[in-house]
Protein backbone atom coordinates (compact mmCIF):
# COMPACT_ATOMS: atom_id res chain seq x y z
CA UNK A 1 0.00 0.00 0.00
CA UNK A 2 1.31 3.46 -0.96
CA UNK A 3 1.10 6.43 1.29
CA UNK A 4 1.79 9.59 -0.74
CA UNK A 5 3.18 12.62 1.07
CA UNK A 6 5.10 15.83 0.43
CA UNK A 7 8.74 16.02 1.47
CA UNK A 8 9.86 19.67 1.79
CA UNK A 9 13.40 20.18 0.51
CA UNK A 10 14.30 23.80 -0.46
CA UNK A 11 17.78 23.42 -1.91
CA UNK A 12 19.44 25.42 -4.67
CA UNK A 13 20.08 23.25 -7.70
CA UNK A 14 23.45 24.92 -8.19
CA UNK A 15 24.33 24.92 -4.47
CA UNK A 16 27.50 22.90 -5.04
CA UNK A 17 28.83 25.39 -7.59
CA UNK A 18 27.70 28.39 -5.54
CA UNK A 19 29.37 27.12 -2.37
CA UNK A 20 32.61 26.39 -4.17
CA UNK A 21 32.47 29.85 -5.82
CA UNK A 22 32.08 31.46 -2.40
CA UNK A 23 35.12 29.57 -1.13
CA UNK A 24 37.13 30.63 -4.17
CA UNK A 25 36.08 34.27 -3.65
CA UNK A 26 37.17 34.10 -0.02
CA UNK A 27 40.53 32.72 -1.15
CA UNK A 28 40.91 35.48 -3.76
CA UNK A 29 40.03 38.11 -1.15
CA UNK A 30 42.59 36.73 1.28
CA UNK A 31 45.25 36.83 -1.45
CA UNK A 32 44.31 40.41 -2.39
CA UNK A 33 43.68 39.53 -6.03
CA UNK A 34 40.82 40.99 -8.09
CA UNK A 35 39.21 38.38 -10.32
CA UNK A 36 37.55 39.26 -13.62
CA UNK A 37 35.29 36.88 -15.58
CA UNK A 38 35.09 37.86 -19.25
CA UNK A 39 32.02 36.67 -21.15
CA UNK A 40 30.72 37.30 -24.67
CA UNK A 41 29.42 35.57 -27.75
CA UNK A 42 32.04 33.77 -29.89
CA UNK A 43 34.12 36.24 -31.88
CA UNK A 44 33.30 39.40 -29.90
CA UNK A 45 36.99 39.98 -29.30
CA UNK A 46 37.61 38.63 -25.79
CA UNK A 47 41.09 37.38 -26.57
CA UNK A 48 42.28 40.58 -28.32
CA UNK A 49 40.80 42.68 -25.53
CA UNK A 50 42.47 40.53 -22.89
CA UNK A 51 45.83 40.44 -24.71
CA UNK A 52 45.88 44.25 -24.81
CA UNK A 53 44.81 44.41 -21.17
CA UNK A 54 47.45 41.94 -19.95
CA UNK A 55 50.28 43.83 -21.70
CA UNK A 56 49.19 47.14 -20.28
CA UNK A 57 48.55 46.15 -16.70
CA UNK A 58 52.10 44.75 -16.66
CA UNK A 59 53.40 48.13 -17.84
CA UNK A 60 51.54 49.74 -14.95
CA UNK A 61 53.45 47.48 -12.58
CA UNK A 62 50.51 45.23 -11.77
CA UNK A 63 50.95 41.45 -11.75
CA UNK A 64 48.34 39.41 -13.55
CA UNK A 65 47.58 35.94 -14.88
CA UNK A 66 44.85 34.47 -17.05
CA UNK A 67 42.90 31.23 -17.29
CA UNK A 68 41.30 30.73 -20.68
CA UNK A 69 38.35 28.48 -21.45
CA UNK A 70 37.90 27.09 -24.92
CA UNK A 71 35.82 24.27 -26.37
CA UNK A 72 38.57 22.52 -28.26
CA UNK A 73 41.82 24.43 -28.88
CA UNK A 74 44.66 26.16 -27.04
CA UNK A 75 44.98 28.88 -29.70
CA UNK A 76 43.80 31.61 -27.34
CA UNK A 77 46.23 30.67 -24.58
CA UNK A 78 49.11 30.73 -27.09
CA UNK A 79 48.03 34.20 -28.24
CA UNK A 80 47.73 35.48 -24.69
CA UNK A 81 51.08 33.99 -23.67
CA UNK A 82 52.71 36.55 -26.00
CA UNK A 83 51.89 39.16 -23.37
CA UNK A 84 54.45 37.52 -21.08
CA UNK A 85 52.10 36.89 -18.16
CA UNK A 86 51.28 33.36 -16.88
CA UNK A 87 48.46 31.87 -18.95
CA UNK A 88 46.77 28.50 -18.69
CA UNK A 89 44.21 26.87 -20.95
CA UNK A 90 41.08 25.00 -19.88
CA UNK A 91 39.90 22.87 -22.80
CA UNK A 92 36.32 22.11 -21.85
CA UNK A 93 35.93 19.30 -24.38
CA UNK A 94 32.69 20.71 -25.75
CA UNK A 95 31.27 21.92 -22.43
CA UNK A 96 29.60 25.27 -23.11
CA UNK A 97 30.62 27.07 -19.91
CA UNK A 98 33.14 27.11 -17.07
CA UNK A 99 32.17 25.98 -13.57
CA UNK A 100 33.73 26.84 -10.21
CA UNK A 101 35.13 23.29 -9.90
CA UNK A 102 37.15 23.72 -13.12
CA UNK A 103 38.66 26.95 -11.75
CA UNK A 104 39.52 25.26 -8.44
CA UNK A 105 41.06 22.22 -10.19
CA UNK A 106 43.16 24.29 -12.56
CA UNK A 107 44.41 26.58 -9.80
CA UNK A 108 45.44 23.49 -7.84
CA UNK A 109 47.31 21.88 -10.74
CA UNK A 110 48.83 25.17 -11.85
CA UNK A 111 50.29 26.00 -8.45
CA UNK A 112 49.95 29.73 -9.18
CA UNK A 113 50.85 31.96 -6.22
CA UNK A 114 47.66 34.02 -5.97
CA UNK A 115 49.11 36.33 -3.32
CA UNK A 116 51.69 37.54 -5.87
CA UNK A 117 48.93 38.69 -8.22
CA UNK A 118 46.91 41.90 -8.42
CA UNK A 119 44.56 40.80 -11.20
CA UNK A 120 43.41 37.38 -12.33
CA UNK A 121 41.40 37.08 -15.54
CA UNK A 122 39.14 34.22 -16.52
CA UNK A 123 38.18 34.17 -20.20
CA UNK A 124 34.96 32.17 -20.34
CA UNK A 125 33.78 30.04 -23.25
CA UNK A 126 32.25 32.18 -26.03
CA UNK A 127 28.55 31.85 -25.20
CA UNK A 128 26.01 34.40 -23.97
CA UNK A 129 23.66 31.84 -22.42
CA UNK A 130 25.17 29.08 -20.29
CA UNK A 131 28.00 30.95 -18.47
CA UNK A 132 25.39 33.31 -16.95
CA UNK A 133 24.25 30.69 -14.43
CA UNK A 134 27.69 29.83 -13.03
CA UNK A 135 29.42 31.92 -10.39
CA UNK A 136 33.18 31.35 -10.66
CA UNK A 137 34.09 33.32 -7.54
CA UNK A 138 34.82 36.42 -9.60
CA UNK A 139 34.54 40.00 -8.35
CA UNK A 140 33.65 41.42 -11.74
CA UNK A 141 31.71 39.91 -14.59
CA UNK A 142 32.43 41.83 -17.76
CA UNK A 143 30.35 41.25 -20.88
CA UNK A 144 31.78 42.23 -24.26
CA UNK A 145 29.56 43.30 -27.14
CA UNK A 146 31.24 43.93 -30.48
CA UNK A 147 29.81 46.62 -32.75
CA UNK A 148 29.36 44.06 -35.53
CA UNK A 149 26.85 42.02 -33.52
CA UNK A 150 23.75 44.17 -33.55
CA UNK A 151 22.57 46.73 -31.05
CA UNK A 152 19.70 44.59 -29.74
CA UNK A 153 21.91 41.78 -28.44
CA UNK A 154 21.30 42.73 -24.78
CA UNK A 155 17.56 42.32 -25.39
CA UNK A 156 18.17 38.88 -26.91
CA UNK A 157 20.40 37.75 -24.04
CA UNK A 158 18.96 39.67 -21.07
CA UNK A 159 20.02 37.13 -18.44
CA UNK A 160 23.71 37.54 -19.23
CA UNK A 161 23.60 41.32 -19.56
CA UNK A 162 21.60 41.55 -16.35
CA UNK A 163 24.09 39.37 -14.46
CA UNK A 164 27.17 41.31 -15.61
CA UNK A 165 28.70 44.31 -13.84
CA UNK A 166 30.11 46.15 -16.84
CA UNK A 167 29.48 46.13 -20.60
CA UNK A 168 32.37 46.77 -22.98
CA UNK A 169 31.60 47.71 -26.57
CA UNK A 170 34.49 46.24 -28.60
CA UNK A 171 35.81 46.77 -32.15
CA UNK A 172 34.82 50.45 -32.01
CA UNK A 173 37.24 51.02 -34.93
CA UNK A 174 34.59 49.32 -37.10
CA UNK A 175 31.67 51.33 -35.70
CA UNK A 176 31.31 53.68 -38.65
CA UNK A 177 31.77 50.90 -41.24
CA UNK A 178 28.95 48.81 -39.75
CA UNK A 179 26.81 51.88 -38.91
CA UNK A 180 26.82 50.97 -35.23
CA UNK A 181 24.00 52.80 -33.46
CA UNK A 182 25.62 53.69 -30.13
CA UNK A 183 22.43 55.19 -28.69
CA UNK A 184 20.37 52.10 -29.50
CA UNK A 185 22.98 49.73 -28.06
CA UNK A 186 23.29 51.83 -24.90
CA UNK A 187 19.50 51.94 -24.51
CA UNK A 188 19.32 48.14 -24.88
CA UNK A 189 21.96 47.63 -22.17
CA UNK A 190 20.26 50.09 -19.83
CA UNK A 191 16.87 48.47 -20.45
CA UNK A 192 18.01 45.06 -19.16
CA UNK A 193 20.38 46.44 -16.51
CA UNK A 194 19.61 50.00 -15.42
CA UNK A 195 22.70 51.95 -14.38
CA UNK A 196 25.27 49.51 -15.82
CA UNK A 197 28.67 51.02 -16.66
CA UNK A 198 29.42 50.94 -20.40
CA UNK A 199 32.88 51.48 -21.89
CA UNK A 200 33.75 51.78 -25.59
CA UNK A 201 36.99 50.21 -26.78
CA UNK A 202 39.05 49.00 -29.68
CA UNK A 203 41.91 46.62 -28.91
CA UNK A 204 43.17 47.27 -32.45
CA UNK A 205 43.57 51.05 -32.26
CA UNK A 206 43.71 51.33 -28.48
CA UNK A 207 40.62 53.57 -28.43
CA UNK A 208 39.07 53.66 -24.97
CA UNK A 209 41.58 51.17 -23.57
CA UNK A 210 43.18 53.78 -21.31
CA UNK A 211 39.76 54.53 -19.77
CA UNK A 212 39.12 50.80 -19.29
CA UNK A 213 42.48 50.22 -17.62
CA UNK A 214 41.97 53.24 -15.35
CA UNK A 215 38.51 51.98 -14.44
CA UNK A 216 39.87 48.49 -13.68
CA UNK A 217 42.81 49.81 -11.65
CA UNK A 218 40.48 52.05 -9.64
CA UNK A 219 38.18 49.09 -8.98
CA UNK A 220 41.12 46.95 -7.86
CA UNK A 221 42.38 49.68 -5.51
CA UNK A 222 38.96 50.36 -3.97
CA UNK A 223 38.49 46.62 -3.59
CA UNK A 224 41.72 46.36 -1.58
CA UNK A 225 40.64 48.98 0.98
Amino acid sequence: MYNPRILEVRRGVLEKNDLLAQRLRARFNAAGVTVVNLVSSPGAGKTSFLEYTLRNVSEQGLCSAALVGDLATDNDARRLARSGVPVRQIVTGGNCHLEAQMIADHLEEWGLALEDLDLFFIENVGNLVCPASYDLGEHLRIVLLSVTEGEDKPLKYPVMFNSADVTIFTKMDLAAAVEFDRAAATAAVQSVHPGMTILETSAKTGQGMREWLNWLTAFHQSHQL
Binding site: P4, I6, L7, V9, R10, R11, G12, L14, S133
Partner: peptide, 28 residues
Protein backbone atom coordinates in the same frame (compact mmCIF):
# COMPACT_ATOMS: atom_id res chain seq x y z
CA UNK B 1 13.66 46.64 -15.85
CA UNK B 2 11.32 49.55 -15.23
CA UNK B 3 8.67 49.99 -12.55
CA UNK B 4 5.29 49.11 -14.13
CA UNK B 5 3.64 51.81 -11.98
CA UNK B 6 5.81 54.87 -12.63
CA UNK B 7 8.28 53.80 -15.34
CA UNK B 8 11.43 54.45 -13.30
CA UNK B 9 14.29 52.03 -14.10
CA UNK B 10 15.37 49.81 -11.24
CA UNK B 11 18.19 47.30 -10.92
CA UNK B 12 17.06 46.33 -7.41
CA UNK B 13 15.95 42.76 -8.11
CA UNK B 14 14.04 41.06 -5.32
CA UNK B 15 12.96 37.87 -7.09
CA UNK B 16 13.59 35.96 -10.31
CA UNK B 17 16.97 34.23 -9.95
CA UNK B 18 15.54 31.12 -8.27
CA UNK B 19 16.61 27.68 -9.38
CA UNK B 20 15.41 25.78 -6.38
CA UNK B 21 14.24 22.29 -5.55
CA UNK B 22 11.19 22.93 -3.35
CA UNK B 23 9.69 19.57 -2.53
CA UNK B 24 9.28 15.95 -3.51
CA UNK B 25 6.01 14.10 -3.72
CA UNK B 26 6.97 10.73 -2.39
CA UNK B 27 5.38 7.41 -1.67
CA UNK B 28 6.55 5.20 1.12
Amino acid sequence: FCCPLCGQPSADIRQGRELELIALEVAD
